[in-house]
Design a protein around this nucleic acid. Sequence first.
DNA 1: AAGTAAAATGTTACCGATAACTCTAATTTA
DNA 2: TAAATTAGAGTTATCGGTAACATTTTACTT
Lengths: 337, 337
Amino acid sequence: MVTIYDIAEKANVSAMTVSRVINNTGRISEKTRAKVKKVMEELNYVPNQMARSLVLQQTRSLFLLITDITNPFYTTLSRGAEDAATKNGYRLLFGNSDESLEKEADYINTILTTRVDGVMIAPAGDPSLPHLESLKRHNIPFVLLDREVPGVDCDIVLGDSKEGARQLVNHLAQQGHRRIAMVNGSDTISSARLRLEGYREALILNGLAYDKTIVFETSYGPRTDLSEMEAWLDSLNPLPTAVVAGNNVLAIEVIRLLRKRSLRIPDDISIVCFDDFGPYSEVDPFMTVAAQQAYQFGYLGMQMLIDRIQNKDEAGPWKKIVLPAELLIRRSVSTIK
Amino acid sequence: MVTIYDIAEKANVSAMTVSRVINNTGRISEKTRAKVKKVMEELNYVPNQMARSLVLQQTRSLFLLITDITNPFYTTLSRGAEDAATKNGYRLLFGNSDESLEKEADYINTILTTRVDGVMIAPAGDPSLPHLESLKRHNIPFVLLDREVPGVDCDIVLGDSKEGARQLVNHLAQQGHRRIAMVNGSDTISSARLRLEGYREALILNGLAYDKTIVFETSYGPRTDLSEMEAWLDSLNPLPTAVVAGNNVLAIEVIRLLRKRSLRIPDDISIVCFDDFGPYSEVDPFMTVAAQQAYQFGYLGMQMLIDRIQNKDEAGPWKKIVLPAELLIRRSVSTIK
DNA sequence: AAGTAAAATGTTACCGATAACTCTAATTTA
DNA sequence: TAAATTAGAGTTATCGGTAACATTTTACTT
């Protein structure tokens, strides 16, 4: 491995002079600068970021931890985050926790040991609290995405889950649906709680009763085994005329089960969900959704994070951005006379 | 920041003893070990990976560079890579080059300066050559994904692009299509060249002429401006009865343009493409595709990479894995009498 | 009880960079 | 022309760990 000492020796200067050329600091004569640069090229020199970070006590890199890399909500969010990070001269690294607290813990460990300058994180849920406390303890600035965690004060970007759920249910009610089921993410996740609340409130506002036997709670992430969900679905008698899914992944899984039973959508049963399907909705604009501004989640969150990092001393009040969801009416809901 | 020296002082031992406790190396009495561990907990000690990597000359982390984080082919591939990396005790970092040579160069720089142990990379194209040479020069093991780069010898995982394209065209021909257009990725990308070749060969085998005016070449990645593609589409007279898209992203963009013209699929025009849409095909199994084994790309590639890293000295011959594509017939192709 | 092997711990140097300070030669100023 | 700046370098210490070697304890032999 070529080091600044190798360069220094070959160029007949001190290592410090090489460092100055690399970083464009201090005073260097044009002649020496040229000489050093030439040697660097000749030897294919690449600075060692670890050595540098060790002394500088900063890495110029940020971390984005999402819970499902195959979910277009998060990949679109990632693009927003990436754009904002790059624009500000930061390197962005990604991690995927898979909605798992254990994987999240591993990534938190990576984050702490590699001393990144800041973190954007979609927490696995309320039990992520110790992970976030750990970040706090070690003074690593972070921004929460999409999910609040009780007991944690920080900058955060949220979607308006309650209002989004209300819109979905209102739409179904307006189309004449009276028996509306819900498949939702875990109760330990703030957005799931709010979506359930919105669902409930909208039911009542539309003169419908809330019936907890037609609400199924599970994980937001894709599961390998659908049998539990299947058992729940089979237990419903009569079948609901519509299902609200807590996110796009759940919607797909419900659809898979419905297809298995040869139930047609929307003829036999209607379905709506949170989050759009990225570009794939265009292939066939089928699902009626409450679309969230995924790109903005990432972009705005990243701006907040960088802001926080660069003004670490000032420590203004915590900021909270709430982005509204938009109801996109497509073909997955039937009208009931 | 708490260091091993802080621990050492408080526990009344030397820094080396602390290091030994952390790494479970050397001989330590149970009493000291317990004492040191207690102090580490009290002070919330987290090892500094940079300092460690600096002396160990290895990071235990790998890098995966993909070209489109919003493409389900790559996100599914990522999951495969992640699983294989985690299983082997490696940390995996992701980067997204967006099919851009410049962004790729930035990531290569990150890779070199951060001294990761190995890299899996879907190169932006043939012009990625210098980037890969750079990795070689600095002795960083890498595995290529999905795309060959002339002039580079290395381990690689490929899809059978030629055969996949043949299958798509054969299917169209069997359904009676005679005028089959193609929208393809850049000629600087090996998979695009092979897909074009497969398309061409299959045309001829089906007694159809190859007409280069109905082949449009562009980037695989999503573009913000569709006007060029639109102009090409408008120039086609008569309109082809079917379009083969070089990947899923291109298929979506073609569909967007066709919809804009109120052309119905498959009634007015049929479309097929390479790569499936991940779970989203389930929402509405619409598009007939040559599905690639995305997860396997990542998983097998990662295994090769780790193998190469762990047997760096042995240096066996370069390995090449070619994964077949599977034709999934759905509803986007009409039958012409 | 003295000698020795094994176990437990400590010392020193180094990984590759940069900050802070020092030094020398050239240039400016009075 | 001597004194004071200033430009252009170099020296040394340090970031937080670990390897290799050195040393001290402890346990075991005879």
